[in-house]
Design a protein around this nucleic acid. Structure first.
Lengths: 335, 335
DNA sequence: TTGAAAGCGATACCAA
DNA sequence: TTGGTATCGCTTTCAA
């Protein structure tokens, strides 16, 4: 036979299509006799309902999209994001939604892919990964204008008209700095890849705030804005820091520079990295980091998106998650 | 208004729905007057066709799925795979198909997600990422039984009933070994994470083959099967290798062990890694690697899948791509 | 709880 | 080239 339809199942089970549909959607008496019979037929025949027909009739796709403007060069953060994506998939599943990931790239590629993805009834809503630190992205505005239910993963630059779920980089910096201070470190170096990044800005702000609270003067020489962790570390070393705070993705470069400079970690210099990447467990010494609660963030993203789908985009939801300090050898707290 | 349909556009443009549909699908005279008029109306109103309705009527979803049984711990290879996924997205786009990525996890998660993904008319076909080195996966058999058009990315373990596109690990090993031999290295150590991995097996086979061709006796002590690159390197060092060949994901561990053992690379020991991960450019020294032609592989995956969708699963297609040697400092060829 | 029948919004066949 | 219309497979009122 070519392929089965719900009508075939109905006929085989001796009931109406409506009834089969109800069984499929669990809106029928739990221990009904018919229910069992229908389920048996479905099982035996290997019937799979037609997705398009279901969506068209029910006016819901049960499909959420995750848009990744994927500059593959942002490798380490992508990796962190992949874990988040897995959590989002699970959270969606629990709510009866499937999560489709789209690597839409940028520029022309992106603009070719978007019309397909934003067709009516294709996805019920979109989660958009914003690369913090890449300035304002027209993508969000473009999607908002289409009226697609939308939530950002990460804090978008620019006006805050988009709902988002993000990690608290500011608070994370605060926690990390406080930790280093409590370990007796006073000359804490800070490496930031770029100040344009919201994350970068938050880190510097958090840094200044904590020192101010403790009445410690900020030595401007200890703050370096540079994309190359190796060079940044080299230039920092001449100012004799006793601790360093930097993006975990820079860990290899930083450690390299320290080795060449004859500085031991954590004895001479305590280290804390942002982002609890797998890499953090592989370095020598293993790197103390700030960890984002990815599972909780994934769930929240899904819940907010479903809320927007059902109740509209207003009011705008902004949710920030605190980061957790994960202590390993590099900060010296374990010795 | 609530939302636009094709009929609305037809009315506004003063034509029939059929005509609008034809314009949407580019089956109408290029410089037709009506065409321009309709396009204008679509533009002005921001009409987006309904995906489910299109799929239902045309019996094609224009959607390809990429299944990733994502054990996130396989981080580095996942990363390599993300690049491939981006290429697949582009290749699909060129053929008019959208690529949806599904992180289906394993076990119970996987079995909950699959029914949704394999509903009729949801995707036209699936590309399945097989994790080489994880033994036989029932997933492929399960999908094949459903009759879903299917192609594997990577060479599946077990009977070869599934079409696949894979990199030639065997040939890659051959190329790398030949290169090291041409540089005068004779005691080449080989580290393999696991022999169960098809990739692992191919590497060992390639290794033996090349040495045999050159009439060089194989020193079994130079072949180490161990998941921990650090320990593997340590144990290898006592047998005085002058070169090492290992998975790039182990690079940090290997380099660490070499440093501690007082061996310099590439002077004392030349290094070549499998897989041209971004990491290869960040190590010290930068790592010579074997690179897979990801763009070509992505295109081939899409073409084969479309072929299977149109012409059925037989005959089974097996395509293997040669790997390319990327020379950096670690092999000593640049000095 | 069940069945009958009217959509859902496109496509594609058949005529004109 | 165009228009009229049956059709795709399911959901969902509305009645029974």
């Amino acid at each position: 036979m070519s392929h089965l339809t719900l009508a075939d199942i109905a006929k085989a089970a001796g009931v109406s299509p409506s009834t089969v549909s109800r069984v499929l959607n669990n809106q029928i008496g739990e221990r009904s006799k018919v229910r069992a019979r229908i389920l048996k037929v479905i099982e035996e025949t290997g019937f799979r309902p037609h997705a398009a027909a279901q969506s068209l009739a029910s006016r819901r796709a049960n499909n959420l999209g995750l848009l990744v403007p994927a500059p593959v060069w942002q490798v380490f953060n992508q990796l962190y994001f992949l874990q988040l994506a897995q959590h989002i998939t699970q959270a969606g599943q629990e709510q009866g939604y499937l999560l489709s990931l789209f690597l839409i790239g940028s520029g022309a590629d992106q603009q070719k892919l978007l019309p397909q993805i934003t067709r009516q009834g294709f996805v019920d809503g979109l989660i958009v990964r914003v690369m913090e630190g890449i300035g304002e992205d027209p993508l969000l505005a473009q999607l908002a204008q289409l009226g697609v239910p939308l939530v950002a993963s990460g804090r978008p630059a620019g006006p805050e008209q988009t709902s988002y779920v993000a990690a608290d980089n500011y608070g994370g910096a605060h926690t990390a700095l406080t930790h280093l201070l409590s370990l007796g470190r006073r000359r804490i170096g800070l490496i930031v890849g770029s100040m344009e990044a919201p994350g970068g800005h938050a880190r510097v702000t958090g840094y200044r705030k904590v020192l101010a609270e403790r009445g410690i003067a900020v030595d401007e020489q200890l703050i370096v804005v540079h994309e190359n962790g190796y060079l940044a570390t080299q230039s920092l070393l001449q100012f004799k820091p006793d601790a360093l705070f930097f993006a975990t993705s820079m860990a290899l470069d930083v450690l390299q520079a320290l080795r060449e400079g004859g500085a031991r970690a954590p004895e001479d210099i305590a280290l804390v990295g942002f982002d609890d990447l797998p890499l953090a467990r592989q370095t020598d010494p293993p790197l103390t980091t700030m960890r984002q609660p990815l599972a909780a963030m994934g769930q929240r993203l899904v819940h907010i998106l479903l809320d927007i789908i059902e109740n509209g985009p207003t009011p705008v939801r902004h949710v920030t998650f605190e980061e957790e300090l994960v202590i390993r050898r590099s900060c010296g707290a374990l010795s």
